[in-house]
Design a protein around this nucleic acid. Structure first.
Lengths: 157, 157
DNA sequence: TAAATATAGTTAGTATACAAATTATATTTA
DNA sequence: TAAATATAATTTGTATACTAACTATATTTA
């Protein structure tokens, strides 16, 4: 079997299913997986720029703007002018948002306990290790692709 | 570290990056990863209903309709009336579509060879095994959630 | 120091995933 | 056998990911 299917499609399929199941469980809280990830990040480190938040959550600026609009609307976060840079905001989690994260954290961990049921800890560790290696390799490929694109641009001048 | 982050977010992040890099490489072919998956499936087994195709590619009907619209537009597939059921089509890959898959198959495999560079085969096998176990566990959770939802519906009657 | 260049966040557009609703058609029920 | 129910594909709507363009602001360059 090709790696395209056995690694590529299998990884993407698992990711979709993880998102699907977590979204189902979060539904009654009117929260999506991606919104949760943003709130969780702010609960850990609060009052950061959207740029920083986009790095921490691996979401692009455009998508993050939309997600923040939604969680701001439900009063889980607020955007505060950044005194150090008028182009940016500091994103702060509200007490309401904090309470939500604190309520949901054990609930979501319970979901994952079910997800990994029957899988040996060493296997899970191996899984995580390969996740990291693949991610690093891809990051390098992405950088190279960036370089190639930039080189192309320079040639056009 | 919570499994939510170490398993959940890490898996989703990897999946996004895989999709991102493959999309970059496919860009010059004016093809996206998801369109590729559909064409690949049809190259393997052709002339199947959209319903069957949606199972084989793990895509919901609504999304698949859109993707088929796009690949049909570029003449990579055609929809043919299904003589056995007037509600459905048989989706057939064209010669053009077939040629594209045959051209791209080694190219994409090359991408994955780069992605797994430096990772031992046993590690990759372990990764794949855990992928499968997690997916099975989630499928079971999804079924249970379905049952719960149906039970709720019945209670409302 | 003014001009050139870069950047933070937003908007607009395309693609995809998912849910709900719809219509024509098939299947099951009574 | 007619009515009730289910189903294939499509449409509509929301959320997310990604790209490109934009505007106000910051930084660098000459």
């Amino acid at each position: 079997m090709s790696m395209d299917k056995s690694i590529g499609s299998a990884s993407v399929r698992l990711s979709k299913k993880m998102t699907r199941i977590v979204n189902l469980y979060l539904r009654s809280y009117h929260l999506t997986t991606e919104q949760w990830v943003v709130l969780r990040a702010l609960h850990e480190i609060d009052g950061i720029t959207q740029k920083e938040l986009s790095h921490r959550t691996d979401k692009d600026q455009a998508t993050l703007t939309k997600i923040l609009d939604l969680v701001e609307k439900r009063k889980a976060v607020i955007r505060v002018a950044n005194p150090a840079d008028r182009r940016s905001f500091l994103i702060k989690i509200t007490e309401q948002g904090r309470a939500l994260v604190e309520e949901l954290t054990p609930y979501i961990e319970e979901i994952f306990i079910r997800m990994v049921a029957g899988i040996k800890p060493e296997k899970l560790e191996a899984y995580q290790e390969v996740l990291g290696l693949l991610e690093s390799n891809i990051e390098q490929l992405l950088e190279q692709t960036d370089l190639e694109r930039r080189n192309k641009s320079e040639r056009n001048i």
